[in-house]
Structure formats: structure tokens, C-alpha cells
Write a protein that binds this DNA or RNA. Sequence first.
DNA 1: TAGTGGTCTAGACCACGGG
DNA 2: CCGTGGTCTAGACCACTAG
Lengths: 237, 237
Amino acid sequence: MASKYMKIYNEIVSEIQNGNIEPRSMLKSESELMQEYSVSRDTVRKALNLLERDGYIQRLQGKGSIVLDINKFDFPVSGLTSFKELSERMGGRTRTYVKELALVKPNDFLMKHLNVSKDDEVWKVVRVREIGGKKIILDKDYFNRKFVPALTREICEDSIYEYIENKLGLKIGYAKKVITVQKASEEDIKYLDFDKFDMIVVVKNYVYLEDTTLFQYTESRHRPDKFRFVDFARRSR
Amino acid sequence: MASKYMKIYNEIVSEIQNGNIEPRSMLKSESELMQEYSVSRDTVRKALNLLERDGYIQRLQGKGSIVLDINKFDFPVSGLTSFKELSERMGGRTRTYVKELALVKPNDFLMKHLNVSKDDEVWKVVRVREIGGKKIILDKDYFNRKFVPALTREICEDSIYEYIENKLGLKIGYAKKVITVQKASEEDIKYLDFDKFDMIVVVKNYVYLEDTTLFQYTESRHRPDKFRFVDFARRSR
DNA sequence: TAGTGGTCTAGACCACGGG
DNA sequence: CCGTGGTCTAGACCACTAG
């Protein structure tokens, strides 16, 4: 897990985030890094490739690697950022209210989205997220019970992801997000501090394990004025 | 440009997209691919890394690589997808109306977003995008004139990106997108077929060249009911 | 045990940028 | 010219999966 190139990657990332490495400056060259870490060039290059993928540096043939000027508050960008990570970054006082926590039989909607049969059972979790005193996000999560045998209110109030990855040891592989804007539902209006808005931003999230089985479906419903999504993209080359 | 691993990547991508390789099936092993393409293992692995990064396959230690079941209509996902690529994928009849095309002196807003001084000149392009007979997107583009000396109505009606990358030879490195939802402006309502909506989805796009200079700022304003954004994300590993 | 992918090494040649 | 990053090779050892 703690491969050499991952250590190099993590060290450089924290140096950039701490400001020890100046944005817009040149990163050490590959050969310097080889000596510094006593590794082969390929190992250095693996670390640099990850840094480039994640938007920390830009590599230029014949010149070197420039450290990009990342606005820390926008970062990280297109990760699997959960509410807990998000709220830690935003700072403001946050709370989570568990409105519903139950095992349900899947309806057609769930069978379509979660790849479960009508004999399986599914955890349904409905949570309201409050930031700075305002109820802004309505999260509806569905898990296949096969993977998550037990679930408690306490876990839901904290971070379900942490429980799943650390306690259950399930390995999340990848996720697909779809963002759309819809008319707000009665449920949205009932649970959220809605003021004058009649639309809602819906982020559908499909989470897959490393063995490619679909494991969780989440709908995250955001008050439109508070929604913000940042994405970093590279040309395919 | 046409490196060996890129050829392998492209071949496998098109085989997946054509359906020649079944989703959920096992991809050929690394050693098989080495023989098939007569390359070293490292070269095969470079191609496979890209395929995994882009969401085409999932690699499993000890087993092999599974071909993921990509919904073609959602794909590609978090690229630098321009309107032209987008409309080609959506199929429907599309049109572009150039509403404004001028060299302007930058105001405070532009100086902040485009890194230009008050003596530079900036291209301003305002375009309305029509899909299926409905005017749905309002694109406002700003380019530093330093990089784009000339710009015509014809280029704007086609694809500015194509002109920039192929004709001018500028190399786009990366881009940052910020998605928010705002109250619709008078300009939005004037130019778009707006029906009953009063909100608009704003996609701010900052495009950088390979040498990390900010080159273009774009605001893409979408009618909320027609907006859809798909993102594919991997765990940091 | 055999086959798969994951990491690491050492060395080669090329393309590009700048003095 | 030299130093940079980009590509490619051959070989080694490890970790994991499955029969």
C-alpha cells in the first residue's frame, strides 16, 4: 500500500499544500528526485504522473515541471468527496440529521439502480445536512444489505464511508456522478430550509467496489444557491 | 504523437465502443497484449493505465482487467467537451447563432479572470446554442488577443477549439470548471427560449495552455431542465 | 502451482528548450 | 551543446487469485 512512488507523491502533495513549494515555481527535476529518494527514474515518474493527473503540476518537455497555483479552497476537485470531507473543508458549523434508517424491499426504481433482485434487502438512509445553521442538502442513500450487514444511527450521523472503508474493509473502486437540475419535490421542501427556490440540484452517485459490483446509490439534493462543483480536466493527449 | 501505447489505447477504446469487446468480460492479459502488439510489458501497461484512468476498464490483481459497462450516451465524461463534440454525440439538429463578436478593453471582471492588463485587448464572443429547435445554451467566451490574432464569424459558428488547436497550433493543457446555479439574467431571458424558469446553470471554464498561461475564460449558461453533467471519479489509490 | 497484475530497477534513445 | 522530460525495452521480485 505504501509504495515508494506513493510516498513521493504524498510528500510532494503536502509540500505543495503547506506552501513549502511555491506555486508557479519549478519542481525538482527527475534526476534530482531520483537522488533525493534513492529510487529509479521510473519510480519518480510514476509519482510525477499522479501529480500531473491530479492537477498539482504541469510537465513540460525540455524544461521541467511547473507547480500549478491551486486555490486550496476549490480542492480537491473531482474526487469522491463526501459530505464529511466537504464540510471539514468549508469550515462552517455542520450537522447531520438522520430522518430515516430502514431496511426496505427494493422497488422498481432501486432494482434498476442498484442491481438487486426483489428478494434482497436494501438499506435506505435519508439525511439532512446543515451548514451554518441552514438545512441545505438532502441525502438519500441506498446500500445493498449483502455488503453492509449492520448500520446504526450513530454511523449515519458520522461518516458512512469511513465505516465502510475502515471497519468493513470494502474497497471502493470508482464512482459515476450525474448532475441535473429538477423541480423541487415536496420532500425537499419539507426537510430543507428552502426560502423562495423551486428548483433543486440533484447529484446522483453510483459507487462501485473494486470488483466492479455496484454497491451504493445516492441522491444528493442541494439547494441551488448553495451548490458548487469544481472539476479539473486534462486533454487526452 | 502516435506513440505505441497511444495506438494500443486507441485501438482498445474503439473496440470497446464498437462493441467488439463485450462489457463485463475479461480483457486480454498483459502478456497476450505484449505478443499481439510486439511491445514490452511497460508499453502495454501504459495503455492499460490510461484505459483505467478513463473508466474503460478495472484492473484486478491476480485476475485480469474487466471491461466496464459504459453507457455510451454518458460518455466521455469529465473531458474538456465542447459544444460541438457534445452536439455530435446528442445527435439532435443543432445551430449556433453568433450574437456578438468584438475586441474589447478588459473590465475589472476580465482582468481578474483572464490575467490581462488594461492595455491588452480581448476577444468577446457571445453565442446562442440551439438543440432540437430550442435555444438552450448561452456561451460567452473571452480570449486574450495575444494568442488569437484573428477571429471571424465563420470560425465562431463552427468550432473555435478546432481553429485554435489545428490552425493556430496552440496546445491546450488543462482546464478547470466551476458549476453553479444562479438567478437568470435579463440577457439569458432575452437570448434563450426560457419558458417558465428563473434559474440558470452557469459553467465557468478556465482553459490553460500547456505552458500554464490562462488563455480563455468561458461562461456557459444552460437552461436548467436541459443541463446534465456526468463525472467519472476514481479513488486516489 | 501457474497465471495474473503491481512495483522497481538500469539502461537506451528520442524530442524539445535554452544558453 | 547540455539538461530536461517522453518513450521503450528486458528482467526481476512480489502479491493476489484460482484450480
